[in-house]
């Protein structure tokens, strides 16, 4: 009975903390006010009180994780919405998505090998640039740990928003297409939200680049897993 109450309390804390901390980001949109960072920190602090027991935590909250499935399906609508953008700029988009994903995987694998990281960690790092639901799918295929990948994806999102702003100032980019692709391929959803602050067109390109590179990762994962065995 007590265990059930504890799991329910965790679910309430997760949902409550999320809706409590979301307005903070809307009022001050900075990388350190993102619910991506603040909610897990709040839950980690609560864990010191209630006990950091993952099985008890996930028992009721796994329903939330399950909703990533329908959220993936919902990506069909932005693709459909931006179909004209795809038709007009498919060569640049294709180059960005293919090139960016290749650099993402190669850099993760190369740098992780160089740093002497664990093989499971290295495999979990491979899809870390794409949006969480698709990254977790790809991670399972690649022999990684999907939960570790979720954590790496979040770190990438938080770091990517800060890095993206620096790079935007440093690189000589002329097109909205390039500015959007930078955020969409490099920092998935977190980056896409930031790209919409830069401009409408940047945001559209970012959301499209995010979905397409995510799909590319999922579709290529089985073949890549075969190669890396």
């Amino acid at each position: 009975m007590r265990a059930e109450l504890l799991s329910l309390a965790w679910l309430l804390a997760t949902v409550g903390g999320y809706y409590l901390l979301k307005p903070l980001y809307r009022r001050r949109p900075r990388w350190w006010t993102s619910p991506l960072l603040t909610v897990p920190l709040l839950l980690l602090a609560l864990g010191l009180l209630l006990g950091a027991d993952y099985p008890a935590y996930i028992r009721d909250t796994h329903w939330l994780v399950l909703m990533l499935g329908p959220a993936t399906v919902a990506f069909a609508l932005p693709i459909h919405r931006h179909r004209r953008l795809i038709r007009a700029h498919w060569p640049a988009l294709l180059a960005g998505v293919l090139g960016g994903s290749a650099v993402a995987m190669a850099s993760a694998w190369g740098l992780a090998t160089l740093c002497g990281l664990d093989d499971a960690v290295r495999r979990s790092l491979l899809p870390r640039s794409v949006t969480t639901p698709l990254a977790m799918l790809a991670s399972a295929d690649l022999g990684g740990v999907p939960e570790l990948t979720a954590l790496f994806v979040v770190i990438t999102g938080v770091a990517g928003v800060a890095l993206g702003e620096l790079l935007l100032r440093a690189l000589p980019l002329r097109s909205a297409l390039a500015r959007g692709a930078l955020f969409g391929v490099g920092a998935h959803g977190a980056g896409t939200a930031r790209a919409y602050d830069v401009g409408m067109q940047e945001g559209s390109v970012a959301s499209l680049a995010m979905v397409l590179s995510g799909l590319l990762n999922v579709l290529l994962a089985p073949a890549l897993a075969h190669l890396l065995r």
Binding site: T14, Y18, L43, L44, A52, L68, A71, T132
Partner: peptide, 20 residues
């Protein structure tokens, strides 16, 4: 669904407890 996606993967992130 897309706007609230953050909420859906926060529980997966809490697996850090297992991998501390």
């Amino acid at each position: 669904l897309l706007a609230e996606m953050l909420l859906f993967f926060i529980p997966a992130v809490m697996a850090v407890w297992r991998h501390l």
